[in-house]
Design a protein around this nucleic acid. Structure first.
Length: 215
DNA sequence: AAGTGGCA
DNA sequence: AAGC
């Protein structure tokens, strides 16, 4: 045989840590419905650059959909039901995205995941996201589901202390990463995006991060 | 050249 | 400090 017979079944889930699973290409068959669903979201709530509580501009453009959206300003990090740009509620979480997240979470061992927030991050070549924890959600028992679209990225997946040496996880268009349980508060980030052009997405990466933020 | 540490 |  030329390669492993396993290749006939497509890329297999990879367990990166006890409660962390990479599902290579899991969203590939649904990228078009996802992008169709994203278009009206971005019309209603365009990407914008938020600022850290210290007043520094974040390199990623971001927006949200769902009943809650992650925001950052001089007041700090928090979830808000309204888009500070429009004053209106964030656009609804598209059902196709909710369903995808629930299936991915279940595959990773998190049954009954019903996200109420999706942070949408926009990366141009050179954009990075420094090491941080997702800790603004109410229930750390709920996992995080991350969907990668467009240009590839190197995801940094660290430990519970900032100084823990992060692993480098290559992420491609259509990959889905799920982490929760004892991995829920691991520091993570994204290295600067390498210049390039994705055949479908152009010179950008979009990351959809689904969470259960509220009660 | 990363990886850390330290910082409002 | 999800930045420098």
């Amino acid at each position: 045989m030329i390669q492993s017979d396993l290749d006939l079944f497509g890329p297999q889930p990879q367990r990166l840590a006890s409660h962390t699973v990479l599902l290579p290409g899991f969203a590939l068959a649904e990228t078009e419905p996802l992008l169709d669903a994203l278009r009206p979201v971005l019309r209603a709530a365009p990407f914008r650059h938020m600022h850290t509580p210290g007043g520094l501009r974040m390199a990623v453009g971001l927006t949200n959909c769902g009943t809650l959206g992650w925001v950052s300003d001089e007041q700090g990090y928090r979830y808000s039901p309204n888009d500070p740009l429009s004053g209106k509620p964030w656009p609804a979480l598209p059902p196709v995205l909710l369903a995808l997240a629930a299936r991915a979470a279940a595959l990773a061992g998190f049954e009954g995941f019903v996200p109420d927030a999706c942070l949408v991050n926009h990366y141009l070549p050179g954009t990075r996201l420094s090491l941080h924890q997702d800790r603004d959600e109410r229930d750390f028992g709920q996992p995080i589901v991350s969907v990668s679209l467009g240009l590839p990225a190197v995801f940094l997946f660290g430990g519970l202390q900032r100084a823990d040496k992060p692993r480098r996880i290559p992420l491609s268009h259509g990959d889905v990463l799920v982490w929760g349980g004892e991995d829920r508060l691991r520091f993570h980030g994204v290295l600067p995006i390498k210049p390039g052009v994705h055949p479908r997405m152009g010179e950008r990466r979009i990351n959809l991060t689904l969470r259960k933020a509220g009660p």
